[in-house]
Design a protein around this nucleic acid. Structure first.
Lengths: 111, 111
DNA sequence: AAATATACATTGACACGCGATGTAGTTTGC
DNA sequence: GCAAACTACATCGCGTGTCAATGTATATTT
C-alpha cells in the first residue's frame, strides 16, 4: 500500500528472486514475507505477483512445480535457477547504480 | 551505461522539478545538466523529457514561456510553481520510502 | 450456513518510456 | 561555400509492467 507502483516497478523481479534465493516458495508465501519484512507497508497486488512469476519462468530465471498438499489449497512452488541467480546479482548492481544516480539528481540544497 | 527505463520511471518528474527548483530552464539545458551531474552516465531520451514537461505543465507543477533568444534556436523555458514545489517535496519523501523498502527487500545474506 | 482465509489465474485498461521521425536555425570543418 | 554537426523543440505509435475486476477451488472459523 501507499507506495506508488512506478517506484517499485523494475524491482519486482529482484524482490521475488531475493526471496527465492533463500528457499523454494509459492506466491502467497512470497507476499506474506514481503508484508512481514515491510511491517505491512507493502505487498504485491496479486495480478502483479503472478504476472511476474510467469515472466520470470518464461525467462528461465525460475522453474515451478505443484506442491503435494494433502490439505488446504494447492500451491505452485517456484525454485530459482542458475540464470535466476545471475540475474539477481545483476539486478542488485542495477539497483545500486540507479539508487546512486537518483540520489545524485533529485536533491537540491535550497528548497 | 544506459539505465533501464523502469528504474528511472517514476523519478523523471522529481529529477526535472529538482532542476527547476534552482532556476528556470529549458529542455536541452535540463538534459545537459543531468549529463554533467552524472558524468555522462545518464540523460533523458528527448521523447521522455518533452513528454514529462508537458505532463508537469498539464498537472500545474510548472509553467512555460518562450525565451527571447536573439540568436540560436528558440527555447521554451519552464518555471516551477508552488504546487510544483510541494510535489517535489512529496516526491522526495516517496523516494526515501521506496528506497528503504527496496533496500530492505532485495538484499539477502547468502548468495 | 456464511464469512473469511488460502491459493492460483486471466483479461483489459492505463501510464510511462522511448525509437523513429520531423522541423528549423546555428556553428564548425574542409 | 556547403555539408556536417549541433542546438532545440515536437509528435506518433509501440512495448512493457501494474493493477482493478473477476473467476475458480478448498479449508477454517463464526
Amino acid at each position: 500500500m501507499t507506495i506508488a507502483g512506478d517506484l517499485i516497478r523494475g524491482h519486482t523481479d529482484a524482490i521475488i528472486l531475493a526471496h527465492l534465493v533463500k528457499h523454494d516458495s509459492y506466491g502467497y508465501e512470497i507476499n506474506r514475507d514481503i508484508q512481514k519484512k515491510t511491517l505491512g507497508k507493502y505487498e504485491f497486488k496479486e495480478a502483479t505477483l503472478y504476472t511476474a512469476v510467469r515472466r520470470l519462468e518464461q525467462g528461465g530465471c525460475i522453474t515451478s512445480y505443484w506442491g503435494d498438499e494433502s490439505t488446504g489449497a494447492r500451491r505452485r512452488y517456484y525454485a530459482i535457477t542458475e540464470l535466476g541467480r545471475e540475474t539477481y546479482r545483476s539486478l542488485i548492481k542495477d539497483w545500486e547504480t540507479a539508487r546512486a544516480l537518483i540520489n545524485n539528481l533529485i536533491y537540491v540544497e535550497d528548497i
